[in-house]
């Protein structure tokens, strides 16, 4: 369904070009939920932007259903790392944004079909637990709420592919878990092929059917691991299962290998341990 072929990105710069990632080749089948895991700065966001068509690849190509990607389009929905709701629209208007665009208009559709698209937007609002906020503007929403709306907005038009760039990165642990559960539920119902970028190992294993691991920059695929759990298995208890923990250990080992520890830093750490900073006298800490 989605295929990356020898995809590569180098940012030209006056001093020294930054080789962000690649070459990377990947094939994604219909309905898969793939997590892209990798250390910070390894080019995950860049790869996602290229697949979305928001950025040009330096080499290689992206194909969707055999068609080469040349620019952004509604068949590839995206949820961003930052909050990107339109602040002047209410939650409901935000989710309906794509329905008013000429490119998504089907002039042969019956009035009933058009209405059903609006009904779908409302249905998603409900599914994501946003009805009470439907008429609020984004500034009245918490971070978790905002990302829920962004997910609904991206799904309204039934994209072929959903791209998510660390969508829960800025959320607290509890909200994060809620939204992970929600993603599993949504994927069960919608079956949207999803590419989910994260640097959280547990999150990757919990939500996805396959984990692709990037090396440190320039990112290359160093592992491609199927996750054997069915969507019915994916309850909070799963995180304590030995099979889950075993996979987590394996991935953690891979990522630890990719850490950018250098000799200089090691030396500094050793010195700190050898000569701890003296604590201030107790009388001062009043």
């Amino acid at each position: 369904m989605l295929s990356l072929h020898q995809l590569e990105k180098t940012f030209p710069a006056r001093a020294a070009a930054v080789h962000a990632f690649g070459p990377v080749s990947l094939d994604v089948a219909e309905g898969e939920f793939i997590s892209l895991l990798g250390p910070s700065g390894c080019g995950k966001s860049t790869a996602l932007y290229i697949i979305a068509g928001l950025e040009h690849a330096s080499r290689g190509e992206v194909r969707i259903d055999g068609q080469a990607v040349t620019g952004p389009g509604p068949e590839r929905g995206m949820v961003f790392q930052n909050y990107t709701l339109f602040p002047w629209l209410t939650v409901r208007e935000n989710t309906r944004f794509s329905l008013q665009l000429a490119r998504n208009a089907d002039y042969t559709a019956s009035p009933a079909a058009i209405l059903s698209r609006h009904a779908r937007a409302d249905h998603l609002i409900e599914l994501l637990g946003l009805e009470a906020f439907a008429h609020h503007h984004p500034r009245a929403l918490s971070g978790g709420m905002k990302q829920r709306v962004a997910i609904a907005r991206a799904l309204v038009n039934r994209p072929r592919l959903l791209l998510m760039d660390e969508p829960f990165g800025a959320l607290d642990a509890q909200t994060r878990e809620e939204l992970q559960d929600l993603m599993i539920l949504l994927h069960r119902y919608e079956r949207t092929t999803t590419l989910f970028v994260t640097h959280d190992i547990e999150e990757a294993l919990f939500v996805s059917s396959r984990v692709v691991v990037f090396s440190k920059r320039p990112g290359r695929i160093i592992a491609d691991i199927p996750v054997p759990f069915s969507s019915a298995d994916r309850t909070p208890a799963l995180k304590l299962e030995p099979a889950f923990i075993e996979l987590k250990r394996e991935l953690a080992g891979l990522l630890r290998h990719e850490r950018a520890d250098d000799a200089r830093r090691q030396e500094l750490l050793h010195r700190l341990v050898a000569h701890p900073t003296p604590r201030p006298p107790a009388s001062l800490s009043l």
Partner: peptide, 29 residues
């Protein structure tokens, strides 16, 4: 107007004219 909003609109299928009127103009109003 944040570039992210333009990107979001593009991934939802907005044309150049729609980005101008529905995102940039509305956001700058």
């Amino acid at each position: 107007v944040p570039n992210d909003l333009v990107h979001a609109a593009q991934t939802l299928g907005a044309s150049r004219g729609e980005i101008l009127s529905l995102v940039l103009f509305r956001g700058a109003l």
